[in-house]
Nucleic acid binder design. Structure first.
Lengths: 361, 361
DNA sequence: ACGATTTGTGCAATCGTTTGCATAATTGGC
DNA sequence: GCCAATTATGCAAACGATTGCACAAATCGT
């Protein structure tokens, strides 16, 4: 079918081994032969067969990225970043979707190792620690976004405590005292850490923690809607809601729209993680950026490092944190008076001149 | 490192070839040996090495999906569908992102074929027809969403003429006479076809085509914003806008929000292709669903078929169309009076009781 | 100009499978 | 029980590269 090394060697009237050495640049070869072979190879359109090479070398030039899904915007940009970086280095990305399901994750891991992937970046479910640990002896592995506590794998994490702190502090600085929090399940690292950042900011500002303002659940729109309703139905509803996940934000927005609650006039809204449409939305939604791009880049860096250092060099550092940053847009407003007292005066840019009903009676 | 066939054979005291045949089920093997080998293999934790197998058989159990990006919601669901289907069949998906760039596409194609992928589903840029044609001799290829006119590859397309027709007709049935269209570049099949569907619906309803209402451009939010402004600035602005792409919709929404144009009261909005947040948006956005899920499934079906039929069986059918369907939500309203004449009466569900300003003076 | 280095090349084994061909074991008909 | 037909196994050669080892050629010092 295609041109093999043998063909090239034949055409150049050298042995296959010489051809191999000349083309790969390994071993001693005269400059002349090297050039000559390169030329002939080019002319013949020779392309080394990665399969054959892989069999011998045990490498595949394949790196896998295992994420939960592709609807999550963070995973999208991570996938794009990883793909771009790897491609530039001559690797192909094997993108796998695990759906946050331990069984699927486990199966996929097995298949990937079978395929002799050269490296793996994984957002772990956290339930396959043992397997990951075992595999990491054969393949360089870097965990992303989540830690698998059962392993001591190198892990690249968002600085969630810091991000949540930053966001909460921002709201506090705007004068908010009652800040609702809709956060992720407390059996995930990120869920716990975002809560802790929120709590820390509150404590630092001398605001008492009020557990009726805190809700934890899955990262889905329904969660956001349910808890938004709960928060708004409170006798003293919060003046701001910090939604610690972008999917849940959909639900919150839905509820505020249903109830004609104007953002940011009646309620300030701050969201964790970016989505492409957040800045097109009106009002543009302020966010705490978890730095998906940076996370992905760092993960690739670390992976490449481990792939270079044979034997999976142990650098000591096991955990990398990527700083979060606040991106102020238009969904949070300054609270001047202790309570806006049904004034209806809009604040940021030209907003709806109406719809200023207080949140629930 | 890992358990090889040799180890299994050794443990079972048979030759490697027998072991191979027993485990793969090819050739003649006694039931007894077969079972025995299977057991031993299981006990030893033997997993065949796809690389070695691939070298011999020329197959890789890898199927590639080449799309433009992952921010496009359609591509997301396609990727998820393809991945799920393939995985169930024991294939791994190689997801590549070409960015709609011919050069990147070309490079990627080469690499993929080097890796001896067993099949390819590609959203072609349309500029590498020759290469695709050549490759299709070695690898089964199915085009998705777009046709590459330079090839006669099997292609799975959305029924864009029909979808655009459906959407436009819906608006017409609601009483709209002046319908703005923001559509894709006219050098792409989908751009042209969506326009043609729109035109056909208009013609059928006896409405004269008005080119000031039609704008074609890239599928990005900026395009939507720019053209939305142009449309709304018209002396007689349209009462409905049909945005033939979901990315562009972002821009349109932005503009309507900026100008306090209430949807659907002041302007009806219909969008092509779904996005997860459309149904959470307020008002929920009506769409023409291009059937991304069906498209992906059909593409997989066709690819599997071609992969089965060695020699790339030519079935005659070169083009498959997947029906589009209208999903009515809350962003389009019935036009009763020829012009809403600043009445401010809301129509669909409980909408904003205010904000009913006519679209521009 | 000669042996000691250095440098370039080829042979052949190897990676883990599959598979054509030859041979060994089993079966069945009579 | 014997011979042919059938079925099961093993040997060895692929697949297309890489690589250790041995040998040939070129280089160098003296």
């Amino acid at each position: 079918m295609s041109v093999t090394l043998k063909d090239v060697a034949l055409a150049a009237r050298v042995s296959v081994s010489t051809a191999s050495r000349a083309l790969t640049g390994t071993g001693l070869t005269s400059e002349r032969t090297q050039e000559r072979l390169a030329r002939i190879a080019r002319e013949l359109g020779y392309r080394p067969n990665p399969i054959a090479r892989g069999l011998k070398t045990g490498q595949s030039r394949l790196v896998a990225l295992l994420v939960h899904n592709l609807t999550n915007a963070s995973f999208q940009v991570m996938a794009e970043v990883v793909q771009a970086r790897l491609k530039a280095l001559g690797y192909q990305m094997l993108l796998c979707i695990g759906g946050d399901d331990p069984q699927a994750e486990s199966d996929t891991l097995t298949t990937l190792v079978d395929h002799r992937i050269d490296g793996l970046i994984v957002v772990p479910t956290g339930k396959n620690g043992a397997q990951l640990k075992t595999l990491s002896k054969d393949v360089p592995i870097v965990c992303l976004v989540r830690r698998d506590d059962a392993t001591d794998l190198e892990t690249v994490l968002a600085d969630d405590p810091q991000g949540a702190y930053l966001g909460t502090r921002h709201l506090i600085e705007l004068g908010h005292k009652r800040i609702g929090l809709i956060v992720g399940r407390q059996d995930t690292t990120s869920g716990r850490e975002r809560l802790s950042g929120y709590v820390r900011a509150l404590r630092e500002a001398g605001i008492a923690r009020d557990d009726t303002l805190i809700h934890a659940g899955h990262y889905v729109p329904e969660t956001g809607a349910t808890y938004a309703r709960k928060l708004l139905d409170l006798p003293r509803p919060p003046s701001a809601i910090f939604v610690a996940n972008h999917e849940a934000t959909l639900g919150v927005l839905r509820v505020t729209a249903e109830r004609n609650i104007a953002i940011p006039d009646d309620l300030s809204l701050l969201c964790y993680e970016d989505m492409p449409w957040f800045e097109w939305h009106r009002p543009a939604i302020s966010i705490v950026d978890n730095g998906a791009r940076d996370l992905a880049n760092l993960a690739v860096d670390r992976l490449l490092h481990r792939m270079d250092v044979k034997g999976n060099g142990n650098d000591g550092v096991r955990e990398y944190r990527v700083g979060a940053r606040l991106i102020k847009r238009d969904s949070c407003r300054q609270i001047d008076a202790p309570a806006p007292a049904r004034s209806g005066k809009s604040k940021s840019s030209s907003s709806k001149p109406s719809a200023a009903k207080s949140a629930k009676a």
